[in-house]
Structure formats: structure tokens, C-alpha cells
């Protein structure tokens, strides 16, 4: 399933007559300035002159513009959606860059220099020579408390985040736990409240002090923000109700992993279901190493399961 689209980079033949990575150089410079500002003020949402892309708003235009601005001919790009390389929109975006930038693409997390993602952080820990680009639908973590941008910007300026704690507290009072399972708010570098994009809260701990640079692009809302390498990212919680991630009683039916985020797959119309890794590369790598889940044919041994 590995995709490679190597071509003579930079020629108009490789990029179909468009500038390298589609955007013109002026626009890329404008976006890079926004990125630099975002890196300098971790978690702060920097407005930028988001362009109309040939893909619809809400389908990754922010991430695409960020990727287009930081990608070079030597880069190797991986694109995932829901953790998978072969979901339709990931395929579409990867093809967009293969076509307009002629860069090499990969499905292997370890081999990629830039990973553009929607809704997941790869299971495999990222390194300091990698960039993770998130597609962000609603960059404002306070949006569900206050719909007005004028107000939320003020709240950020004053670090007025009490409302968010109240909301989490109300969850605990009603449900006995915090009822937010994705896009779980985080505090970056002890200053800015940030929406991690709709990744499951399972992925939040991976953002904390991550060696890779994390960039967030919201095209429709025209905002860019960033978490520089090794920056503390704390999921909001309370002393007596510490932050927790999702757990499953089952393991991945294909590779037997018990430490990955699992997707539920309906197998019949009588309530039958199985779980598989949402991160397809992680799952494939494990199977290549010989791990087997209960539905993968051969059964696995406990030794194989404990890596």
C-alpha cells in the first residue's frame, strides 16, 4: 500500500504548471510569517490571510496551506485521516501534493518528514526532525462557551479560562466524569488554552513535550497556531478528577495491540463488532513484526504481544 510519487521536483511537468506546492511564493511567505509568530507564542491563534484552495473549506484547507508553506522538494509526506492513510480525503490530499509538489509520499510514520493529519496523532512517537500538521475545523477552544470572536480574544488576552473549568466541573457534577472525548482542551506552555483539533483525548498526552514541531492550520477560520518542540501541553483536569484517556477491554483484532486507539467495525446486523487499530501504519508494522490479533488467522503469543 505504500505510495511513492517521485518525479523531477520543481519542474513544471512534475507540478502540472502550478508553482511548487500550489501556493505562490508570496502567499507562502505570508503563511510562514504567521507560523513563526505562532511558534513564538505557543498556543496563540494567529490570524492569517487564508486562501481559497481547490479543496473545500472544512476538508483540510488550513492544514494544506501550512504543509504547502513548509514543504520542500526533499521532504517526504504522509497524510492520514482518522489515523489511516487510505481514507478518501487522505488519499485526495496526498495526491494533491504529489501532483503540485512532486514530493515523495509515504505511509510509514518513521519515514515521513511532514505528517498532515486529521483527527489523530500517530501511535509511533515522533522525532525532532518531523513536523506534524493538524487540520483544524474550529480553532477556538472557547467557542462553545462564547460564540463571539471579539469576546474569546479578550478572554485569551486576560487568560480568563474559568468558564472552561466550570464546564468540566458541571460534567463531573452531572455524569461523575468529564464528558469530553475528543477535542479535549489543553493548556499550552502554562499560558494559552488551545483546541487540539478533534483528536481523541487518547492522543492528548502525546502532544506534551513532543520532540516534533506541531503546527495547526484552520483555513476557513483563518487561524494558525503551534506547539514548538518539547513544549508542555496539559490537558485540563482537577486534582481529584485527573485527566484520563479511553481504554478498551478488547485488543486490535488484526495485530493484537492493546496500547493503540481502536476503531469499532460492525461485522453484522446483530450487534457483532470487532476492534482494529485506527492507525493503519502502526497496525501493519506490528503485523509485519509477526503480531497477530484474534481475527488475523494465526493466533499470537503473549511474548509477541509484549513488545
Amino acid at each position: 500500500m505504500s505510495q511513492t510519487a517521485t518525479a523531477a521536483v520543481g519542474t513544471s511537468a512534475a507540478t502540472g504548471g502550478y508553482n511548487f506546492a500550489y501556493l505562490d511564493e508570496q502567499t507562502k511567505r505570508m503563511i510562514r510569517r504567521a507560523i513563526l509568530k505562532a511558534v513564538a507564542v505557543p498556543g496563540y491563534q494567529v490570524p492569517f490571510g487564508s486562501r481559497e484552495m481547490p479543496l473545500p473549506y472544512g476538508w483540510g484547507t488550513g492544514g494544506i496551506q501550512v504543509t504547502a508553506s513548509v514543504i520542500g522538494p526533499e521532504d517526504r509526506l504522509k497524510v492520514i485521516d482518522q489515523g489511516a492513510d487510505d481514507t478518501t480525503n487522505a488519499v485526495s490530499i496526498r495526491r494533491f501534493f504529489a501532483r503540485t509538489a512532486g514530493v515523495e509520499t509515504t505511509t510509514r510514520t518513521a519515514e515521513a518528514t511532514i505528517i498532515q493529519t486529521r483527527h489523530r496523532v500517530p501511535e509511533e512517537p515522533l522525532k525532532d526532525d518531523q513536523i506534524l500538521v493538524y487540520q483544524v475545523p474550529i480553532p477556538e477552544p472557547l467557542r462553545w462557551l462564547e460564540p463571539r470572536e471579539r469576546e474569546t480574544r479578550k478572554m485569551h488576552a486576560l487568560q480568563e479560562y474559568g468558564g472552561m473549568h466550570v464546564r468540566l466541573y458541571e460534567d463531573i457534577a452531572r455524569f461523575g466524569q468529564i464528558a469530553t472525548s475528543y477535542n479535549y482542551p489543553v493548556l499550552v506552555n502554562d499560558r494559552y488554552l488551545m483546541a487540539p483539533s478533534p483528536i481523541p483525548k487518547f492522543d492528548n498526552p502525546k502532544m506534551d513535550r513532543m520532540p516534533a514541531l506541531q503546527l495547526f492550520g484552520a483555513g476557513r477560520e483563518k487561524r494558525i497556531y503551534a506547539v514548538p518542540p518539547y513544549t508542555p501541553v496539559k490537558s485540563l483536569d482537577f486534582e481529584d478528577y485527573p485527566f484520563e484517556v479511553q481504554t478498551w477491554e478488547d485488543c486490535c483484532a488484526l495485530c493484537g495491540a492493546t496500547d493503540s486507539y481502536l476503531d469499532e467495525v460492525i461485522t453484522d446486523d446483530k450487534g457483532g463488532h470487532m476492534y482494529v487499530c485506527s492507525d493503519t501504519d502502526y497496525c501493519e508494522a506490528r503485523r509485519a513484526e509477526g503480531h497477530r490479533g484474534p481475527q488475523a488467522g494465526t493466533s499470537f503469543t503473549d511474548d509477541e504481544r509484549d513488545e
Binding site: G58, A179, P198, P200
Partner: peptide, 25 residues
């Protein structure tokens, strides 16, 4: 309408990771 239509129709994209989180919850 370009912004609105794009965001509205992005609901067609897979959301099963988020939905799984909600199912677990």
C-alpha cells in the same frame, strides 16, 4: 457560501475516531 458549504459538507468525511470516543463515553 463557499465557507459554509464546505464546512457543512465536511460532515460527509469520516468521523469514526471521534465517534468511537463518544461510543466509549
Amino acid at each position: 457560501n463557499v465557507e459554509a458549504s464546505g464546512f457543512l459538507q465536511h460532515l460527509k468525511l469520516p468521523h469514526y475516531v471521534d465517534f468511537q470516543g463518544e461510543l466509549v463515553l
